[in-house]
Design a protein around this nucleic acid. Structure first.
Length: 567
RNA sequence: CGGGGCGUAGCUCAGUAUGGUUAGAGUACUUGGUUUGGGACCAAGGGGCCGGAGGUUCGAGUCCUCUCGCCCCGACCA
């Protein structure tokens, strides 16, 4: 491609709405342009990057024997009613009617459609396993799209689904997909981590997220500093505490604690470590039908992890509760405890089981109990409720947990029969018995990956594409096209690179050196060959975008040098 | 959906508190000339429903009402 024939509208100034580096540089360098909230046009360079990523995914899927399909973007609402998700997805599903008044939705994900293509067609265990996928535009009418391509309403996703006759076989495929996704991200040149994830309301037996590590990531990860363990904080576990503060000694008693409400107040008042205090967090748990207040008890030194808390009571949501609601129940904020208390449903954190020497609210204004032995609560409901914090121990190796930010670019999930059962997608097993398919699902955010590459690879000058994602690997920049010998050399090199199968672009614009260099850096081609003054000495220069280092090479050695650099 | 902010040239923005010539700058674009290793310079040009509708007024980019859009924080995000 020649710059003079290309459409690469670069700008000096960033769009005012852009905040993230990926959003700023992808717009400024002419890869994408915003159409409306959460909607983007991909311009020629952006489309090339998308294609590159898609090609790598296709190759890795083919290597695993997954089959590519292409399902209708517009899907009948009936399917969504059948699975029950039309309610659950709510406003995120964009619905509309055709001229015959039939209700349709734009596909936000394709479990239902995918099940429908195998249902009643794959009818025997002999036809299993089956793994089908597509790379397709999705639409989710997000309440708040943001951060450019990172959270768009219309986006490109690779979504794959596998069908099995046994959980063992699902496990095997799940591992194969994890390995394939890992290879995809390695080939793209990304620094990432595969982490344990919350399986959430959808259920299933396991789920992992692929996280590209970047400051701007929306997810917080707990990762071990010495082993491979990593988890989304929503699902992170920790080792039992290695050192426990010295326990205060006190006999069980009801103690007057005037106006001592917070954990800080309490530990200050009694001069004890917050470890020995019991924190009560009351929230309203919302279910598909109805809601109820629930109290979560955790140690004072811990923080409640809301996703874990939500899962512990099977709620679809937890919302804040008002003081008025609390007093209506008969609870006193600041003095809530689990003892002798039947006013509210409560769940206790695993780490409080059998705890001794605890201080907790006495459910009466200005009174706490001290010297509490929580083993009296052993019949209560327990669950893991706390947020793993930096410095906690790794559950696998005892190393130290650190927090880091990640961009979720993939999510793989063991679905089991969550969809196949309600959609009655069944096969006959060896015994002639009808069984629902055991399913797995494997998603990867393709357009989000475009942004993720830049979030992880950019500098103050612009984009730094990795070799596998670059729209063109080499930019042949003729610094002054009026120098005929320079231009001639540039043309030859450009032709030769193409003949060698190296994707190249020729900057043949009538612009000055600085202007072209700035564009080269903004767009972020991995290598820019500078054809200029040095040519009179029989050499040219190669600017290596990642480091902005400029090396001088013989005019005839460029291709060899580039091959060496890419390796 | 709650809270905040912003809509003026392709882009980034002045101008709006206090209404008053023909609505400005930078950048981008066109033409000519000079330049040519870090976004050059000179000259001449084209480009605006001042988001939309209604109102107040002799007169509205500016004041009032309504509306639409976009961004940010939060809620939400299989």
């Amino acid at each position: 491609m020649r710059f003079t024939k290309a459409y690469i509208p670069t700008t000096k100034e960033s769009p005012k709405d852009a905040q993230l580096p990926s959003h700023i540089y992808l717009s400024r360098a002419g890869f994408v342009m915003q159409v409306a909230s959460g909607l983007y046009n991909f311009l020629p360079l952006g489309k090339r990057v998308l294609r590159k990523i898609e090609a790598i995914i296709n190759e890795e899927m083919a290597a695993c024997g997954a089959l590519e399909v292409d399902l209708s973007f517009v899907t009948p609402a009936e399917l969504w009613e059948e699975s029950g998700r039309i309610e659950k997805f709510g406003k995120e599903l964009l619905r509309f009617r055709d001229r015959k008044e039939n209700l349709f939705v734009l596909g936000p994900t394709h479990e239902e459609m995918m099940v429908s293509i195998v249902r009643n067609r794959v009818t025997s265990y002999k036809q299993l396993p089956l793994n089908v996928y597509q790379i397709k535009t999705k639409f989710r009418d997000e309440a708040r799209p943001r951060f450019g391509l990172m959270r768009a309403r219309e986006f490109v996703m690779k979504d794959g689904y596998s069908f099995h006759a046994s959980t063992d076989d699902l496990d095997r495929e799940f591992d194969a997909m994890e390995a394939a996704y890992k290879r995809v991200l390695e080939r793209l040149g990304l620094n990432f981590r595969i982490v344990e994830a919350d399986s959430g309301a959808i259920g299933g037996t396991g789920s992992k997220e692929l996280m590209v590590l970047a400051q701007s990531g929306e997810d917080t990860l707990a990762v071990c500093d010495s082993c491979e363990y990593g988890a989304n904080v929503e699902a992170a576990r920790r080792a039992p505490r290695a050192t426990i503060p010295e326990a205060p000694s006190a006999d069980f008693a009801r103690f007057k604690t005037p106006n001592v409400k917070s954990i800080d107040d309490l530990s200050g008042f009694f001069h004890v470590d917050p470890y020995y205090t019991l924190k009560a967090v009351v929230m309203r748990a919302v279910y598909t039908e109805g809601s109820e207040p629930v109290c979560f008890f955790i140690r004072g030194c811990d923080e409640l992890q809301e996703v874990k808390a939500r899962n512990s009571v099977g709620a679809i949501d937890l919302v804040d509760i008002t003081e008025a609601e609390l007093s209506e129940i008969g609870l006193v904020p600041g003095f809530i405890g689990p003892l002798d208390q039947d006013k509210i449903r409560f769940v206790m954190d695993n780490d409080t089981r059998g705890a001794i020497s605890m201080i907790c609210g006495a459910n009466e204004v200005d009174y706490h109990f001290v010297g509490v032995d929580l083993s009296v609560m052993n019949e209560a409901s327990f669950a893991d409720l706390v947020t793993v914090q930096e410095g906690d121990g790794c559950p696998h190796c005892g190393g130290k947990i650190l927090h880091t930010k990640g961009i979720e670019v993939g999510h793989i999930f063991k679905l089991g029969t969550v969809y196949s059962a309600p959609l009655k997608a069944e096969y006959l097993d060896e015994n002639g018995r009808s069984q629902p398919f055991i399913m797995g699902t494997y998603g990867m955010g393709v357009s989000r990956l475009v942004a993720a590459v830049i979030e992880q690879h950019h500098d103050e000058k612009g984009c730094i594409w990795t070799p596998a994602t670059a729209p063109y690997l080499v930019n042949v920049m003729v610094s002054n096209i009026k120098e005929e010998s320079h231009m001639q050399y540039g043309e030859n090199l450009y032709a030769q690179l193409q003949k060698e199968g190296i994707e190249a672009i020729l900057d043949d614009r009538k612009e000055r050196f600085g202007f072209k260099m700035s564009d080269a850096e903004l767009i972020g081609f991995p290598y820019t060959v500078i054809v200029g003054k040095e040519l009179d000495n029989g050499s040219v220069q190669i600017m290596i975008r990642a480091t902005r280092e400029i090396i001088t090479v013989g005019a005839t050695e460029v291709i060899a040098k580039i091959r060496e650099l890419v390796k």
